[in-house]
Write a protein that binds this DNA or RNA. Sequence first.
DNA 1: TTGAAAGCGCTAACAG
DNA 2: CTGTTAGCGCTTTCAA
Lengths: 340, 340
Amino acid sequence: MPRVGIREVAQAAGVAQGTVSHYLNHPDRVSAEKADRIRSAMDRLGFVRNNAARQLRLGHSFTIAYIVPDVSNPFFATIAEGVEARAAEAGLSVFLANSNRNIAREESYLDLFQEFGVRGMLVASPRPIEERLAGIRAHGTPSVLVGQLAASPEQPSVSIDDVSGGRLAAQHLMSIGRRRIAFVGGPLGVRQVADRLQGASNAIRDAGGATLEVIDVVSRVMSEGHEVGEALLAREVDQRPDAVFAANDLLAIGIVQTLLTGGLRVPEDIAVVGYDDIEYAESSLVPLTSVRPPHEEFGSAAVELLLAVMDGAPAAASAGRETMQLVFPPDLVVRQSTAG
Amino acid sequence: MPRVGIREVAQAAGVAQGTVSHYLNHPDRVSAEKADRIRSAMDRLGFVRNNAARQLRLGHSFTIAYIVPDVSNPFFATIAEGVEARAAEAGLSVFLANSNRNIAREESYLDLFQEFGVRGMLVASPRPIEERLAGIRAHGTPSVLVGQLAASPEQPSVSIDDVSGGRLAAQHLMSIGRRRIAFVGGPLGVRQVADRLQGASNAIRDAGGATLEVIDVVSRVMSEGHEVGEALLAREVDQRPDAVFAANDLLAIGIVQTLLTGGLRVPEDIAVVGYDDIEYAESSLVPLTSVRPPHEEFGSAAVELLLAVMDGAPAAASAGRETMQLVFPPDLVVRQSTAG
DNA sequence: TTGAAAGCGCTAACAG
DNA sequence: CTGTTAGCGCTTTCAA
């Protein structure tokens, strides 16, 4: 099987190479008759356009990269939806890369995509990465930081307002009459956790009349939730909180499961609010009230921002912080775990 | 900021362009002194190798594609681990694409990757796709079908033996003395579901002395599990099975939750086995016994197969079915839900 | 509307 | 060990 390029197609169709290229890039400027001959020659020969040559000639690609720390995290997966949809509208393809929370791998993808000449990158990283992105930007590849607020005004970012999410959760618990609220989460060195607690604390301080206890955990997984549940069950009744705000849904689900098994009622005895609104929150034994970050919108906003800096770099630069760094407020989804 | 290519680097380092290229491709054939000058010029100028030109010249890339129907499915995500690790060893990068169960999108990625000249593709698709892959292979891009057994002897594939998985589950339940087994799953038009039931049925027929009831469900999600659990609770005690084999873990977890809430004991009253061994199986209220498909190994085997057909196309062709189409037997992970 | 031809940045073959 | 150079397949002037 010989290589098939536009030259072979041109020959088979009896036209010049340039005409075939024109057919590919400006179909309207080729006569219907030749267009037909070209089309049929392409079908017959099984022509596949060579992207490397095209890109070399053009000087750029039609591709953007989306680098995530963990593809299986539903949060990033859902965002990917919005990213692909918006990118497709703009005629761009998306290459996904999974760094798996491995810095070396993240680095190598950053290099790789730069060498590939992607038009831009969406980067979700568990570490501070702005300097690296600044360097890449200096070489002509713009990026949008996903999931964390950029510190530099030059770095576009889309992120979630976790302080307001925490506030939402605490306000809701107070609104259903709870007064002894426990925040379950940690370590507080993790920005998101700290912000969620901060928000809850703000709400409680502002409203007055309620107390906030902090129950620290090492990691935010379901088994830690089980342990916290056990600890709550072991307390004297009058020492128990009447509401729990967990830093994520996994913790919350673990806590609910253990409380129920131990004979307590949710929400009657202890109301529970989670965070993230993962798929299992809804189908949990007691459907879980949860703080829901925006999903679809988030991804498309990231691409939107990237498109803006891709083209109108100067315009965007002068646009300033408020348009370069989008912060989304989360919603509260109320379900049975606080329906009382 | 001027474009910087090897020409600019060569000029800055005071060497010829070819020497810079040699430094990049055969570092050992460049004198240490010039290598240093080149290295420092590259750092100073911020040289980024242009992949398009490289690939055009070379005639091929160092990239493979992995197309999945759903990135957030932990099954594919875990496989991706093995894929990346093995690919990295072979000096290849992996581009992930998410078709999101959308045929048009899958098609467009297939085209895109072909145009990008990837060395090969790993394709997990919810639909029959062998003919399409055969066409792509005819144009020089080999592929491995992931998750379904290929029908054609020319198409390499890696898949799971669900019949043997079903057998394992049923044998285990019988080995702990259960005699009234219920299979919960559906629709039976889904190959995996049918195979799992087939395996269970085979085991029970061969062993004798046990009965197999089929409880059909519309989809394999947690809420269906809750419904099945309710239905079981509603039965007369002597009409209840003493074991449940669920077609996946989500169903199993839903069933366990509902049974426990209804006052039954797991495994004492009803033992439960799931399938897939998802993350939540282990951290569920009663840790779930589950049939575990191989994960890491699966991904690396897929790459291995791809590497084989990439190089030794003739050798591989003569290798025959047994080496081109890998079928992995799953394991059984025994936990508390059947520990009785 | 079509054809001819230059050249994108790199690699490798070849000459020195 | 280093330099020179052809050419990968495509797009796009420019001329006809």
